[in-house]
Design a protein around this nucleic acid. Structure first.
Lengths: 207, 207
DNA sequence: CAGCCATCCCCCAATTTGCGGTATTTTAAC
DNA sequence: GTTAAAATACCGCAAATTGGGGGATGGCTG
């Protein structure tokens, strides 16, 4: 069965370049190419692509919001983001919107085809640097000033639990939780749950 | 400059296999091979590896906790997890512990070397399936019953903000926030912040 | 027009929170 | 072997938060 592919890219030259690559690869069928998400969305159901090559910086609806809308219509459709910039914020927002991979534009013809194949196989193709950013987003700093217990308590707070609930879950007294919180506030130099979570979150001090 | 590599793997055969690969590759220097994290930790400062090949399932301190401890001693050291199982929970806990990549054991000699090189270059080598799992962990379900505004309010809750603070940040009245919360509780059939966050989080309904 | 959404207001009682103390035990470090 | 940090626990207090109940308005959409 041929895989149907749609291209959304406002630069005509690049778009036609991709189109040519798809056209010349057996097994892939170009089912649409558009300069804006608006156009693509209108024909999305007729085109019914298995995969969309999506540019990030588009006039009107950008690639991130476009991804969100396409996935809302057909969650099975894979959206592969293709971009020149490796902007960390855009990477994460794209992934949250449902992107299935994130690759940089300068990759050569073979790379594009390989990445498409990888995405269709159920993989998540990413450039070296992107993969690194994604992995690092998970990492917590190894130099947290908070003790293990304090981190556990703060984690409870981030889950919206009350002191009493945290105490129950950790098998300690509510008063102990209060003491831990006090110490956390002192160490982070804050005086509210929201501020503590903000500081600890920014510095990746949460377990 | 040669790159120093340590292997931690309890299966002697596999360990020696890796050791042979490293030894026979120019540019890499095997600076230690151990069957447990305990042993590796003792010699870690003398060995001073640039990269550690780490098995997950180890007797005593497992690979995840081992990663955490190694990174605590030398955050610049890259830990590459090598495993047979692609257990999603272990993947994430490894990444949180500071792992720089996560690859499956069946990969052939060339793959191992390529993954090591990629990690040392600043990449984050991952098997196809692992990458997919990681990317999917970011994704939110496209079928949340919560309206956009309700999701924003719930996000504020997850950040530990009070209703008043959320109201300030969203430029609406505290009473409106309360109404949104009430509606969220009804939709999710819960009656507390913690439960709402748990349900919404599990189902990936949080923006 | 019915339903959903977003916005705002009131009342009330129970709980939570943040801050001030103090104190014991264990573990780790020097 | 002293010192320090961490984990545990308790008390009191005043302000704020929370959850539940009710009602209201306007906008948009099918």
């Amino acid at each position: 069965m041929e895989k149907r592919i749609t291209i959304i890219e406002d630069n005509g030259k690049i778009r036609e370049g991709f189109a040519a690559i798809i056209d010349n690869t057996p097994g892939y069928l170009l089912c649409g190419q558009y300069g804006t998400c608006e156009e693509a969305l209108i024909s999305f159901n007729q085109d019914n692509p298995d995969l969309v090559l999506m540019d990030i910086d588009l006039p009107g609806i950008d690639g991130i919001e476009g991804t969100r809308r396409l996935k809302k219509i057909n969650p099975a459709c894979i959206v592969l983001i293709i971009t020149v910039l490796e902007d960390s914020d855009k990477v994460f927002r794209s992934l949250c919107a449902g992107a299935g991979g994130y690759i940089v534009k300068n990759t050569d013809t073979d790379d594009i085809i390989r990445n498409i194949a990888e995405a269709l196989e159920g993989g998540a193709p990413m450039s070296l640097h992107i993969a690194k950013m994604v992995v690092q987003s998970f990492r917590q700093s190894p130099d947290s000033p908070l003790s293990d217990r304090e981190q556990e308590v703060l984690k409870g707070i981030s889950e919206g639990k009350s002191y009493s609930k945290i105490a129950l879950d950790l098998f300690i007294s509510k008063e102990t939780v209060r003491t831990h919180i006090k110490n956390v506030y002192q160490k982070l130099e804050v005086n509210s749950k929201a501020d503590a979570l903000k500081v600890a979150g920014d510095k990746k001090w949460l377990s």
